[in-house]
Simulated assay, not measured.
Amino acid sequence: MNCWKTINISRDYGTLRLVMFSTSTVLLSFLFYYLIMSTIVQTTEFTPFGFGTFITGLLLLVISHKILHCLPIWLFGGRAIIKFGKYMFVPTMAIKLKEPLSRNVYLLALISPLAIITSLCAVGSIMWPEYLPYFSILTSVNFGLAFYDLVYASHLLKAPKKCFIEDHDEGFHILIKQAV
């Protein structure tokens, strides 16, 4: 007979500390990305957008980040939904899993927004160098959003390869099958 051993990973790492690390990640990634891309790409005259367009782009970035988390889950036959809510006065989005996922699918779901959005912004920076500052900001905000994902991924990389991940409100549980 088999039973499951559960390891609980809490989402509460000290919210203020994570926000500070995430904000630092945004600032440092902007500096590095812009510096590297401006040396690779011949920069041209900056083309300004309106403030409304810029804010819309940031909102679309957050939404696409969440959808790209769900995409690998959906492609591998998992069931996940995006739930909308509110924390104080700030609208929020959260992904809820309907069933446990394998470790590799969960890792892919965590890393896919970082890889895809960063790649698209790098291609956009090369193709349209006049928008390099905007692509740099989008990439750095995406890195800030992905900071949390990288923290969770670091826990999952230490887990056994044949485990399953179950999502809960307080965090996620790593399920390990054991012989009894």
Rank of each mutant, 00 (worst) to 15 (best):
M1G: 05
N2L: 07
W4I: 13
T6H: 10
N8S: 09
N8D: 08
S10H: 04
D12A: 10
G14H: 08
T15L: 13
L16F: 09
R17C: 05
R17F: 14
S22D: 05
S22E: 05
S22K: 04
T23N: 06
T23P: 00
S24K: 00
L27H: 03
L28E: 02
L35M: 13
T39A: 10
Q42D: 13
T43K: 09
F49M: 14
G50W: 06
G52N: 07
T53S: 13
I63A: 12
W74S: 06
G78F: 11
A80T: 09
I81A: 12
K86F: 14
Y87W: 13
V90H: 09
V90D: 02
M93Y: 03
K96L: 11
K96H: 12
K96G: 01
K96D: 09
L97T: 01
P100C: 05
P100H: 05
N104S: 14
V105I: 15
L107T: 01
L108S: 13
A109R: 03
A109C: 04
I111R: 01
S112L: 14
L114W: 13
L114T: 07
A115T: 14
S119T: 14
G124V: 05
P133L: 09
F135E: 04
T139V: 01
F143M: 15
G144E: 08
L145S: 09
F147R: 02
Y148A: 08
D149Y: 08
Y152R: 09
A153C: 09
A153G: 09
A153D: 06
K158D: 06
A159R: 09
P160G: 09
K161V: 05
K161T: 08
K162G: 04
C163L: 03
E166C: 06
D167Y: 01
G171H: 07
H173K: 11
Q178W: 00
